[in-house]
């Protein structure tokens, strides 16, 4: 598979042939042969429905999955470090120091019996060996950075004393406290009200531009993905099926699943007509079909779709889609002379 080429020579993240299996009978193939690069300061949006393996991919980058039940193969490099070989203190230094994570529901991801200030300061003390006073000062600075009003007072608040949007801002402040080079955002707006969602998205985009970190943003919402990302990767049944710049994928999706996702969008839908939802449900990750996983739901499926390996169509600027028809269409276009 062709990885995304990056703008600079040394990518911040280099994932190659990553697969994640959860032990069980039968084992669950949560992530299958995923490869991608992320340049420093680049925002990659991973788009997919629930259970497509996007959160698992993200958690694997921090090695947050339960070790005993998980088998990870492939390679992950973040900032030149081989993440899969990290152990003990080195792994803890990676988490929160080099790469940190924003969770979907901040009311679950923050410790209920510690104040926001304590939780941020704790991270700073852990990674930078700062004194308590300095760490608290940094916590205040971070709360101001994420534009929490009356930040000084909020330092002493417990998570349950804040609103959902405020909590997510605090979570972002916590994640950014040690200036990570990579920010992993796991559906950070899904648990929020629509109006608050937009505020958080804008905040994230501003902070990304201000601090210049690389971001991997996981979501099932195309609108959200388009809003924040430079590049998109569409994920289905544990595999990337199409990647490319946001513009290219939105304007000219090649994989039938990406097309389906775009068609199912509410924007531009005619009231009173049925939405073009993608029919059927994703396959069980414990029993993936041979060949293209999307074939059973695909309107254009043919015999060639259930034979491995599925050919990959590649376009310019790191675009590719893994689809029999996309590849054939290109071949025919190529034979007929390029326009």
């Amino acid at each position: 598979m062709t990885p995304l080429p990056s703008q600079s020579d040394t990518p911040l993240v280099r994932v190659h042939d990553l697969s994640v299996r959860f032990a069980g009978t039968p084992p669950v193939h949560a992530v299958n042969n995923v490869s991608f690069d992320l340049a420093p300061g680049e925002v990659l949006g991973i788009l997919g429905e629930s259970g497509s393996g996007k959160s698992v991919t993200l958690k694997t980058l921090l090695r947050l999955l339960p070790e005993r039940k998980t088998r990870i193969t492939g390679t992950i490099e973040v900032d030149g470090q081989d993440v899969l070989s990290l152990q003990g203190r080195a792994l803890a230094d990676h988490r929160g120091g080099v790469a940190s994570m924003i969770f979907q529901d901040p009311s679950l991801a923050l410790d209920p019996v510690y104040t926001i200030g304590q939780q941020i300061a704790e991270t700073v003390i852990r990674h930078e060996g700062a004194s308590k006073t300095d760490a608290m000062a940094r916590a205040l600075e971070m709360l101001e950075l994420v534009r929490i009003p009356s930040a000084r007072r909020r330092l002493d608040n417990y998570p349950h004393e804040m609103s959902g949007g405020m909590r997510q801002r605090a979570m972002i402040a916590l994640a950014l406290a040690c200036r990570p080079k990579l920010l992993l955002a796991d559906e950070p707006t899904t648990a929020l009200d629509a109006t608050v969602q937009i505020q958080i998205l804008l905040l994230l985009r501003d902070l990304q531009q201000e601090l210049g970190m690389g971001v991997i943003f996981v979501t099932h919402d195309i609108g959200v993905a388009v809003e924040v990302s430079d590049r998109l990767a569409v994920m289905y049944a544990g595999s990337f099926v199409e990647t490319g710049s946001v513009r290219d994928v939105i304007r000219d999706a090649r994989h039938p699943y990406s097309k389906g996702l775009l068609a199912a969008n509410l924007v531009g839908a005619v009231p009173g007509t049925r939405l073009d939802a993608v029919p059927g449900a994703p396959p069980a990750l414990s029993a993936l079909p041979e060949g293209c996983s999307f074939a059973p739901r695909c309107a254009h499926a043919e015999a060639a779709c259930s034979a491995s390996p599925i050919p990959v169509w590649t376009g310019g600027d790191g675009r590719w889609a893994r689809c029999v028809q996309a590849s054939r269409a290109e071949a025919m276009a190529g034979a007929g002379g390029r326009s």
């Binding site: 230094d93 988490r95 994570m101 679950l108 410790d111 991270t123 852990r126």
Partner: peptide
């Protein structure tokens, strides 16, 4: 089992 424990590990606590 709660998610905040993942959160604690994710921020690098030993």
């Amino acid at each position: 089992q709660q998610e905040f424990v993942s959160g604690l590990r994710a921020k690098g606590l030993l």
